[in-house]
Design a protein around this nucleic acid. Structure first.
Length: 945
DNA sequence: GAGTTTGAAACT
DNA sequence: CAGTTTCAAACTC
């Protein structure tokens, strides 16, 4: 702050001894860097290294390419996972073994195995982090542990959890023990299994199992889809459609890895899905296991004990791997003290790119989400309470491992991580969190997380820290961008963080989560760092948006070839001031440029490249202005982000392979149509729902919901392919602008909790449309809610389909308060930002925004929030048909509430959310079956309440 | 590696 | 708000 806005100039003038003695290395190495690197939009390629996040800076990273880094990193990620488990192979084997072993008698075990395997895949990566932080203790059972944790967490809340966990947990525990005992035997058994497999020609059986799984998955509501997509995306296998994921284990693991590495963003979006999916998977897994068992039986497969043993052994091994990973993570944390999270971050970034980009966005998100789930940890529990709905068993099921990790993640880490998602940032955040330093601790770390994080954290802290974590992350990211400059005051940061941070568990988990990524990423991380591309600024001192590092909210690091760089921790004040100045001019300046609308399922094909990324889901906020590149070169931001061009783009001769201008319009139309329907349906439902404050609160406050949502978005984005998109998506979600973070909680939690299904429905059904609608609704309230609403979390659907997932009323209250608080803060801060953003979008092109994607964008962005707040619903929004908007903003006069008070906003948001839920079902039909399923759940929840 | 092209960011 | 300039990345050679 010392530096007044002018300071930026200082750098210029003052020579720039930019790099002062500050050992760039430290910085770079510092978690912050990793975090930054991840976050930094900067090219993921090399970026990771030294980037450090700005204290106040948001997580612009989303927008950035950093995610791309993933590609490079991906390998590392992949390696990690692999390494972790070599686990992948192990998993696959395990899976197979599980199949083999699936003998009827052990269906339960099998289920656990499947779950574990699935989880494992994810977990391994994620787990690592989580496990670390939380504890290596959770040892073995990886997935199981997670499950157990989750179960515990969920406690009585989640029925599904109860259902799932019990078996899984028990089985797992047993199997784990057995496995552990028989580790040695396990290897042998593996071989045996293989032979037996061959002998048995399990093919059929396996096929049946897979089919069953797939079937289950497919059947499973949107969650499954979401999950599947994510995974797929992650793997790259991705069945074009949603479910590609039949291969739960590997796919998940890969997805996670990949996501973390490159797809993170897309996957993040997916991650949200993942959570849901995870939940679904859990339930499904159980079913699948049963089915498999049946099928196997039918097939005449005979599972010998040896097979079982083998399976268990595999599981145990996996677990061990995880543990090992976790240990590593823990060690890192312990030794480094969480510093390392960077690695995770990077990974994530890599994945996501970041997050989200998303870090492995997906992975990171997943991890984060997992961490959320982790609630097991003390703080986590709070989260758990919150999370249950989201993470509840279901999620745990698949992602248990993942989730659990997160549990620990707690708020800060998560938030940080999220912000970092993209990468290194997480580490930084972690450090800061641990240090409690946001206040003062490493500027870097603080800087990295930036204000956004702080805000988020603060909110989270207020909230109790628990729930927010994940959400906070997203929020943070989102908010970060907005807040980054202004809000960031460290002071706020401290308080917020400390509370949250203090919670060791959470932090660790977070860290772990990140780390998981990091741990995995760590390896990759290094790669990233090296590979990361950094800025090469010569005249801007790296204090302008020209600088990718700066734009990404990262400090420049060694990899950078910049000259006279002031974008260094040493010049934190200057950096912050500059940021603020820029934000003052353009609140969205640091916001993610790419927004994922819903999540498209992973149509994306190749996650890795992101080339196939589902452009449809993500779009560039402002749109490109290409005239000569035809949007076929990296000159085009849209193309660079692996997203399609939208109506908002002013490009000429657009040939964007990810999607050309016109395409988006169709979506709008659909949305508008659907919107109308939704509106009508919502109207009734919403009102009815609205009455149910509890739900609303839950949704709003449900932190879990928050995080999940964002992830989903992220995932949806590019997945792997597009770093920026990723980031953007992830960031987007998170980005303050997106409001998602804040809103996300709303939409996500409440709505999700209540309507997870609906969300899914929505998302799946109309990815684009749905988003809009949901956004509109969400926006109305909270702004970002829309995102959340959209977020897959909704999908997460509790197995129960119950809204009940929502934390206990008390918790909710607390959370709600916290959220409200956060909301206020956020809203206040964000509101401005959002408004700004909206002005941006809207302002710059109000019409456009409304019209085309803008609508979406606006919605997604913060526009909606503004709208909601101020009411002036953009015509578009209305057009969009988001009934919510119409009703919400203007009519009820709630507008004031929405705008002003978080509570009001929440209420409205709740209403919206609820409405959204009901409405979706109708819509869904068009969209996807999934949506329908989701609807059912959501409806149930809504109706039930 | 140097130079050109490109489009965003910044400025007027 | 539009137009111009500046900037750094992307691209080409």
């Amino acid at each position: 702050m010392d530096s007044s806005p002018e300071q930026p100039s200082k750098p210029n003038n003052s020579t720039h001894s930019p790099p002062l003695p500050i050992p760039p290395l430290q910085v770079q190495e510092s978690p912050v860097f990793s975090y930054i690197s991840n976050l930094s939009p900067i090219k993921p390629d090399k970026a990771a290294l030294g980037s450090q996040g700005f204290p106040g800076i948001n997580s612009p990273p989303l927008v950035f390419r950093s995610p791309h880094i993933n590609p490079k990193s991906q390998p590392s990620f992949l390696k990690r996972p692999q390494s972790a488990g070599s686990s992948d192979a192990g998993l696959s084997e395990q899976n197979e073994s599980c199949k083999d072993t699936l003998t009827v008698a052990e269906e339960s075990r099998v289920s656990s195995c499947h779950l574990s395997s699935r989880l494992r895949s994810c977990p391994q990566k994620e787990f690592i982090d989580d496990s670390k932080p939380e504890k290596a203790s959770s040892p073995p059972v990886c997935g199981n542990d997670y499950l157990t944790d989750i179960v515990n967490m969920d406690g009585g809340d989640s029925d599904s959890s109860a259902n799932l966990t019990p078996k899984s947990s028990d089985d797992v525990s047993q199997s784990q023990h057995e496995l552990l005992d028989s580790k040695e035997s396990a290897e042998n058994t593996e071989d045996e299994d293989d032979t037996r497999r061959e002998e048995m020609k399990m093919g059929a059986a396996s096929v049946t199992l897979e089919q069953a799984e797939e079937y289950n998955l497919k059947d499973s509501p949107s969650d499954l889809k979401s999950v599947v997509p994510d995974q797929n995306s992650g793997d790259g296998n991705g069945p074009p459609d949603l479910h590609p994921r039949v291969e739960p284990d590997k796919s998940v693991g890969h997805a996670l890895e990949n996501q973390s590495g490159g797809h993170s963003m897309a996957e993040n979006a997916g991650s949200g899905h993942v959570f849901e999916v995870g939940c679904n998977l859990l339930s499904e897994s159980l079913q699948v296991a049963q089915d498999c068992g049946r099928s196997l039986e039918n097939a005449g497969v005979q599972c010998t004990e040896s097979l079982e043993n083998k399976v268990h052994g595999h599981c145990a091994q996996i677990v061990q791997h995880q543990h090992g990973i976790s240990r590593r993570c823990l060690q890192f944390e312990d030794t480094q003290g969480k510093i390392i999270p960077n690695s995770g971050y990077q990974n994530s970034s890599g994945s996501v790119g970041y997050p989200r980009s998303p870090a492995s966005p997906a992975g990171s998100e997943v991890l984060e989400s997992a961490s959320l789930n982790k609630p097991a940890s003390p703080s986590n529990r709070l989260l758990a309470n919150m999370t249950p709905p989201f993470f509840s068993p279901q999620t745990s099921g698949n992602y248990n491992s993942k989730l659990p990790k997160r549990s620990g993640i707690g708020l800060h880490l998560n938030s940080i991580v999220n912000s970092m998602q993209m990468g290194s940032g997480a580490k930084v955040s972690m450090r800061s969190a641990e240090r409690g330093s946001f206040n003062g601790l490493g500027k870097k770390s603080m800087s990295i997380t930036g204000s956004s994080l702080r805000h988020n954290f603060s909110t989270s802290a207020n909230v109790e820290g628990v729930p927010i974590s994940d959400e906070s992350r997203h929020n943070e990211h989102a908010s970060d961008a907005a807040n980054s400059a202004s809000t960031l005051s460290p002071c706020s940061m401290k308080p917020l963080y400390e509370p949250v941070v203090l919670k060791p568990i959470e932090l660790q988990p977070n860290s772990s989560n990140k780390r998981m990524c990091t741990s995995e990423t760590s390896d990759s991380f290094v790669d990233f760092g090296h590979g990361c591309k950094r800025c090469n600024c010569k005249k801007t001192k790296c204090l302008k948006l020209y600088c990718d590092c700066f734009a990404a909210g990262i400090y420049c690091a060694e990899p950078c070839a910049c000259q006279g760089c002031f974008n260094r921790p040493e010049y934190e004040d200057t950096v912050l001031e500059t940021r603020q100045q820029i934000e003052s001019r353009n609140p969205l300046a640091f916001a993610p440029k790419i927004i994922q609308h819903l999540t498209e399922p992973p149509t994306n094909v190749c996650a890795e490249d992101g080339s196939h990324f589902t452009p449809s889901s993500a779009r560039h906020k402002r749109g490109c202005n290409c005239k000569k590149s035809k949007c076929l070169k990296k000159y085009c931001e849209c193309y660079q982000a692996n997203v399609g061009c939208s109506d908002g783009c002013r490009c000429e001769a657009c040939e964007n392979v990810y999607g050309q201008k016109g395409e988006f319009g169709m979506i709008k139309d659909l949305i508008s149509k659907h919107g109308e329907k939704l509106d009508s349906s919502f109207g009734t439902t919403l009102e009815s729902v609205a009455s149910k404050d509890g739900l609303l609160h839950n949704e709003l406050y449900n932190p879990h919901s928050l995080t999940p949502l964002t992830p989903a978005f992220q995932c949806s984005d590019h997945g792997k392919g597009a770093p920026k998109a990723w980031l953007s998506s992830g960031g987007y979600l998170q980005s303050p602008e997106s409001c998602l973070t804040y809103l996300a909680p709303y939409g996500m939690s409440p709505g999700q909790a209540g309507n997870p299904d609906t969300h899914n429905m929505i998302i799946e059904a109309n990815t684009g449309i749905m988003d809009l609608v949901s956004f509109g609704q969400g926006i109305g309230y909270g702004n970002g809610h829309t995102v959340n609403q959209l977020s897959p979390r909704c999908e997460v659907p509790r197995n129960d389909g119950r809204l009940a997932d929502l934390p206990d009323p008390q918790d909710w209250e607390n959370t709600s308060r916290a959220q409200t608080y956060a909301n206020h803060q956020v809203s206040s801060a964000n509101s401005l930002r959002w408004r700004r953003s909206s002005t941006h979008f809207d302002g710059t092109k109000p019409d456009e925004a409304a019209d085309f994607d803008g609508g979406l964008y606006s919605i997604l962005d913060d526009d909606t929030p503004e709208i909601l707040k101020e009411t002036p619903m953009p015509p578009n929004a209305i057009k969009v048909s988001s009934p919510n908007k119409k009703r919400v903003s203007p009519p009820h006069g709630q507008g004031t509430e929405l705008g002003s008070s978080s509570s009001a906003g929440l209420r409205t948001g709740r209403k919206f959310i609820l409405q959204a839920v009901p409405s979706f079902p109708p819509l869904t039909p068009c969209i996807d079956s999934k949506g329908a399923t989701g609807m059912n759940n959501s409806q149930k929840s809504s109706s039930g309440k």
